[in-house]
Design a protein around this nucleic acid. Structure first.
Lengths: 137, 137
DNA sequence: GAATAAAATTAGTATGATGCTAACAATATG
DNA sequence: CATATTGTTAGCATCATACTAATTTTATTC
């Protein structure tokens, strides 16, 4: 069963970007999202508006912050991402390849499936390459 | 590295459908592709035209056949599909869940990565559920 | 072979995701 | 305050997906 919350790939990338790099001290702004995603501000704005409409994101004086729902979704994605990545790495894929492929699955996989793989793998805390998840390819 | 031939998800489904069920005795026709993909004939036609343009498919008196290129691509996808599925099933996913998730990866994964997982798994000949690959969800 | 049925095709339209430029507005910063 | 930065709007474009309605083509059947 796939996850009920439907995100597009770019929405997924945006949530992970904001969730990963936007600490409470330094929340991201539109211009930074645009730059990091290699798109122009109007494109980023469009994406951001969709995430706001989906209840994932809130904007306060230009600052972009995930809502609780957005944080939960982001955590789920990152957890799924690491699980999938780790599984693939154990089967001989390079960390980068595993990461890229994982981005195609992490946001569509349901929690139950992730948990089942978790029990087999042990919960990995970091990516196989030890770096942060690269959201923008 | 992702595969250089870029297919959309529906193109992937269509190639696999034709490759799997279209034997040389009974090649599929447009109407059957439409029915099996649960779309109307014009939608199927559009898809088919794109695959013809990409050199994956040829049409002979209404019969749809994969070209050599299409056959190679289809084989690659199916092989990748089974490898990914088997890997996931070994980590506790149900056959159906593994199949669904695998459909998101099988057509974007490059041969080298597939082969690396192959060496770890042993080349599986069938899906974990022993059924044909379900292309249309 | 003509009539009918089935299949294929065209034309037109729609939606959603992604992306852009150009212009303008709002907000900071010096 | 002037300038620079940032955000926003409007308008447009492309691609994938999908539809209906109408027409044409191809098969089948009488």
């Amino acid at each position: 069963m796939l996850n009920t919350i439907t995100l597009t790939r770019k929405e997924r990338d945006c949530i992970v970007l904001i969730g990963e790099r936007g600490t409470s001290d330094f929340p991201l702004r539109l211009i930074e999202v645009a730059n990091r995603m290699n798109v122009k501000p109007p494109t980023a704005l469009n994406l951001i508006k969709r995430l706001v409409a989906k209840g994932m994101l809130k904007r306060e004086r230009g600052m972009l912050r995930l809502t609780d729902k957005g944080k939960a979704e982001c955590s789920r994605i990152i957890e799924s991402h690491r699980v999938i990545e780790t599984m693939m790495a154990r089967y001989g894929l390079s960390a980068d390849e595993a990461c890229k492929l994982s981005c195609n699955l992490d946001f569509v996989m349901d929690e139950e499936s992730v948990n089942r793989i978790f029990t087999e793998l042990g919960k990995p805390k970091v990516c196989p390459h030890g770096k942060k998840i690269e959201v923008v390819q």
